[in-house]
């Protein structure tokens, strides 16, 4: 793909640049500004230098302890949901019907959870899991399990994880399905002639073809689970105690709950930096996938 060099293309990009700069650069400047200061209310600010950052990365202080604990919980959460959603998504994609109206029906039902407002996802599971009025909670308690996501830490975690699996596994499945569909029939015919087993077909044809889509899926899921806020907030409110308080929930507590601007800003910047690093990996993967595209279409 040879593109011509044309600096006037900037005029076409300018509107996007201005709109996004207005809502990205301006607010970030305020964040940077706040992160260096302390406030005692009344709009009085005092220079605090890198004090907040030092505190943030020191687990013995209150701020640092809360940040690192929520970061740890968030990473654990991301790891768990990736470990469940990726294999499950692959299995679901492989189980999709081959043709006919059922394909469309499956696609629509799979997409349904992805399009539900996030707080409604929370509400759905909040209701569904309640021992008194929810089908899930009622059934589990009926089976003799003492399930209560409001008071029991493990149950709260299980509910939040199952909710995320319910909400986002479809994304992995849809991406994998799109990857599988790009495999030409000739590959399968060749495998059949060679007498390859199903497992061999999966390992030698399907998995390599799904490689890039899977990378995209893993990165997207990591990013989104790393900044998850609304769903666990609605279901557990970060509790019981602090057991399901993830980084975003902690940040909103400090920023909008306590109006502790300096601490919140410092946390924001560190948080954003982590995201930026992952995002860079993501970008490299995405653009490489784009470069491969014409070749893939040529083969099909």
């Amino acid at each position: 793909m040879d593109k011509t060099v044309n600096q006037r293309a900037w005029f076409l990009v300018l509107p996007v640049f201005l709109v996004v700069a207005f809502s990205a650069i301006l607010p970030l400047m305020t964040v940077v500004n706040y992160s260096m200061q302390d406030t005692f209310g009344n709009n009085q600010f005092f220079w605090n230098g890198v004090g907040w950052f030092k505190e943030l990365l020191d687990p013995s202080t209150d701020l640092g302890g809360r940040f690192l604990a929520s970061l740890g919980r968030n990473l654990l959460f991301s790891a768990i949901i990736l470990a469940i959603e990726v294999p499950l998504g692959i299995v679901v994609a492989l189980s999709m019907p081959r043709q006919g109206w059922t394909v469309a029906a499956c696609l629509v039902i799979l997409a349904l959870p992805l399009l539900i407002p996030w707080n409604v996802v929370g509400t759905i599971w909040q209701i569904f899991g309640r021992p008194d009025i929810g089908l899930l909670g009622y059934t589990l308690n009926g089976l003799g399990m003492d399930y209560n996501y409001v008071s029991n830490e493990f149950d709260a975690w299980a509910t939040v994880v199952v909710m995320d699996v319910w909400h986002w596994t479809s994304l992995v499945a849809l991406l994998c399905y799109a990857g599988l569909k790009s495999i030409p029939d000739a590959y399968y015919q060749a495998a059949q002639i060679d007498g390859a087993s199903r497992w061999a077909v999966f390992k030698a044809i399907q998995l390599p073809k799904m490689n890039r889509v899977l990378l995209i899926a893993v990165l997207l899921r990591f990013m989104d689970s790393f900044m998850i806020y609304t769903e666990p907030f609605v279901v557990t409110g970060g509790g019981p105690g602090n057991s399901t308080t993830f980084v975003s929930i902690e940040l909103v507590k400090i920023a909008l709950g306590q109006f502790d601007l300096g601490k919140a800003a410092a946390l924001s910047l560190v948080y954003n930096l982590i995201i930026l690093i992952v995002c860079w990996i993501f970008y490299t993967v995405m653009t490489n996938a784009g470069a491969e595209r014409p070749v893939k279409q040529g083969a099909a």
């Binding site: 990205a24 607010p27 964040v31 900044m227 975003s248 909103v252 954003n272």
Partner: peptide, 11 residues
């Protein structure tokens, strides 16, 4: 990819 929580207060 930026977390909305970061932007809530500055917005």
């Amino acid at each position: 990819m930026a977390p909305a929580a970061v932007f809530a207060l500055p917005f």
